[in-house]
Simulated assay, not measured.
Amino acid sequence: MSADAQIVARDRRDLLGEGPLWHPAENALYWVDILARRINRLHLGDGRVDSWVMPEMIGWIIARRDAPGFLAGLQSGVKAVTFAPLTVAAFADLAAEPAGNRMNDAKADAHGRIWAGTMPVGCDRPSGALYRLDPGGALTQVDGGYHIANGPAISPDGRWLFHTNTFLREIYRFPLHDDGTLGSRALWLRFADDGGTPDGMTFDAEGGLWIAHWGGARVSRFDPDGRVERVRRLPATQITSMAFAGERLDRLFVTSAGDGVDEPHGGDLFEVDAGVRGLAPHAFGRENGYDA
């Protein structure tokens, strides 16, 4: 067991845990298991975990500001999802995507837009892309050429969008304009060969960028110049993403994957002491995210 992390107790582990999302109004953390087609919810008050099975592989879930429930990125496109009772309805399709692609990771920005990546299920060709979903429902491709599109993250000042090309070990930085257009893509960081590959990402309130190391058994905090400032080791190899949660946004939850590895904690959900607070998540549909 790593001294850096605690395991969240529950009755199953994830095949491919991803996309953690803090929901302040519910005092709950949501995340998905892509391969098991599940949405999971951890109640921070009592530790209870709920789970729902989706009709397709699911890459992410983001709360809605101007309507009940959530949007979720399924293999065929974006769906509107509500719970109690569970409903799944079409919202925006991926008609232009090649057959065999799926959605993988996403984040909402302060203007209520969602930035979401796609990738081939087999990770075998650069057919994935980066999309922008506007509050009005328009879905626009803004970048392409990804084997594995991962980890959108938006800087605290809203001026930069970071996106990961996991297959190439590269993280790109785009100028992000108020109207939703992106400036030219620039390489911001390339992972060393001994560090695994970059997966999900999130910024903290001080501007540090936390990156999950797939194959590297850790999450790391990088400073604005791309230097490692802090490392938290984990007792699982395939680390996928993370999100700050809790009333003070000082609890860092980390997802992992158990598919393809023989590890006692692969696929567990971890809580890590990051030593810093995070940023409140934004919701889809309107500006400024959740109410405080």
Rank of each mutant, 00 (worst) to 15 (best):
A106D: 04
V231H: 04
Q6P: 00
Q238K: 15
G183F: 00
P198Y: 13
V219Y: 07
V32Y: 04
R102P: 11
R125L: 04
D199C: 04
L15W: 09
D250V: 03
G17Q: 00
R65T: 03
Y131P: 05
A89R: 15
R277M: 09
V81H: 10
A9W: 03
P135G: 12
P198E: 08
D194C: 05
F162E: 00
G47V: 12
A149T: 10
L16S: 08
M54A: 10
G19S: 15
G151Y: 03
W52Y: 13
F191K: 07
L182Y: 00
G117A: 11
F270Q: 07
A108P: 01
V276I: 07
W31D: 11
D262H: 12
T140Q: 01
A280M: 14
D105V: 02
G215P: 11
A116S: 13
T255H: 09
R169S: 13
P224K: 06
A257I: 04
E18C: 07
G117S: 10
G180T: 03
G47A: 13
W60E: 08
G128I: 06
G208K: 10
A5W: 05
S184Q: 13
H213G: 03
R13N: 14
L94G: 09
G200P: 03
L234Q: 11
G207C: 02
L269A: 10
Y290F: 15
L189T: 01
R221K: 13
E170C: 07
G278V: 01
G137D: 12
W160M: 00
P85G: 11
A99Q: 14
A138H: 12
L42S: 11
D223Q: 09
V276D: 01
P120Y: 06
D194G: 05
A149P: 04
A99K: 14
W160R: 02
N101R: 04
A99F: 05
T87N: 09
G19C: 06
A96R: 13
L133P: 13
Q141T: 06
K79S: 13
I239L: 07
A36F: 03
G226H: 06
L86D: 06
L209Q: 02
R41C: 14
Q6I: 06
A84E: 14
E271G: 01
A186R: 08
A283F: 04
Q75R: 14
A280P: 12
D143N: 02
L94M: 14
I211S: 11
P264F: 05
F270H: 07
S155Q: 02
Y172G: 02
M119C: 10
D33N: 04
